[in-house]
Amino acid sequence: MIATILNKAIAQGIPLLFGSTGEILTEKSGNLNLGIPGIMYMGGSCGIIGAYLYEQMVEVPNAFWGILIPLLASLIGSTLAALIYSFLTITLRANQNVTGLALTTFGVGFGDFFGGSITKIFANGGTLSVKTTADFFKTTLPFADDLGWFGEIFLSHGFLAYVAVIIALVAAWVLNHTRVGLHLRSVGENPATADAAGINVTKYKYLATCIGGAIAGLGGLFFVMDYTGGSWTSGGFGDRGWFAIALVIFALWKPNVGILGSFVFGGLYIAYTYIDGLSRSAVAIFNMLPYVVTIIVLILTSVRNKKENQPPASLGLPYFREER
């Protein structure tokens, strides 16, 4: 029972982990990308479109192309979305909040439109399913079932779950122990300083935002392939994108803390299904829990006021060298 709950919590947490790692990288460059929910939507819908087209193209899908094509489709979709955001906020210096929110609206609409269209055209109004491809994604290690509770909790996930953890660990290492990380953090803290030190601020902002977007998009892909098993339902992704952004704050902008945080959020997210006799309103209260926890973390860090736990100092601000 407990193993099942933990397993589900982790599965719930993985999309959030992708989203928050992507957003942390983005925010470390000083870009507050509130378009992450939309980008995750687009990553998911592009992945499922890629999978669907591939399944249509061949008689018997094989695992290699079955994974590579949706993966690439998802990465391209979410990177392009992040690129739109980057161009607007970095090159044109548009307001980051407005751009991000618009991108979320756009991404959700994009996902529902294409996901919905394909469903309507090809599945005749039924449910679109790319189960064959999804099963490739869900393949687990063959010996996972033999390892009891340990196998059930930690080894019974598709490969993307491990990718998420690895990306988070690598991101944490890059941020704290490499020159690239030092430069990226300086761009988010004080772009004028970074610029004067000879760091290409625009390049770092673009790369961090686009790579961050691509990582976040994988969260959408994990959701449609692994979590729902290859089917698209409008609005099925729900508010996971916003949870990912809340998780960034919860993790204090540290991707490695985000791993644990994502599991906590995942657990809180599904807690209500394990409590009997909850009314609908009580369920809604349970769904608020991750936000409540985030607010508590915010209060605690604000009270302690430790500089290292604050958001990047120039988060949300545009940078223009010759501004006077």
Binding site: R179, L182, N190, T193
Partner: peptide
């Protein structure tokens, strides 16, 4: 001053340097 507040003195000093010998 063009310094990053949350970095140490040494981190600020090497900021932006491309040292071939590694970090």
């Amino acid at each position: 001053f063009k310094l990053v507040d949350v970095f140490t003195a040494a981190q600020n000093v090497i900021l932006g340097l491309e040292d071939k010998k590694g970090f």
